[in-house]
Amino acid sequence: MRVDLAALVSAWPFLMTGLWFTLQITVVGVAGGIIFGSLLAVARLSRNRLLSGFATAYVNLMRSIPLILVIFWVFFLVPWAIGWFTNHGRPVAVGASLTIFVTFVLFEAAYYAEIVRAGFRSISAGQYSACEALGLSKFHSYIYILFPQAIRNVLPILLTQTIILFQDTSLVYVISATDLLGAATKIAQRDGRLVEMYLTVGAIYFIICYAASQLVKQLQGRLSYGAR
């Protein structure tokens, strides 16, 4: 087999466009996932049975099914859902990007919710009582006192989940989106250069994820040192 470096060089800009989209999905997934996930976590801890029941069911459902299946669900259902509200029930064409952003927020939120919930449980019960004793409202207690502590306690797990999310973005391949892997696939098929393209994107994913996981490991060391 002959490796064609020139093909790689000419493909590089397109690969970077794909990587840019991969990063966009990651950022949206992380930001939206943590916000929605935190709401789910708070809902699960709520005394309102209906609220906590819904949150629990949602999290367990999402964690039981494959991400690819969720991508398909959203891909087929979002056009209907939007059409239902705006277009007298007829489906509306929706771009792949929107489908993907919605999917990742909905899906990753379930995973972040469990992590944030573990964070809340790691806070001593005294903190909750202290908030009440100070007369802080529920909302203020969570925003200023509880949430920051919860996040700090689970920061390494949160970041590790984010690396997993970054890897999961490659699954948007199933609806032919042009993320890093999608870009590589399109060039690979056009030029018949599967080997070079897939080895290259494998290396790019590896470098990013390995570097990130080493950073998390360092942070973990520093956090546990600070706790001593």
């Binding site: 890897q167 490659s170 892997l181 599967l194 080997v195 897939y198 494998g202 590896f206 994820c209 996981s213």
Partner: peptide
């Protein structure tokens, strides 16, 4: 540190 899907392609295509 490599996505499962990329590994799938490695075993299947590469």
């Amino acid at each position: 540190n490599i996505p499962l899907l990329v590994q799938m392609f490695f075993w299947y295509f590469v």
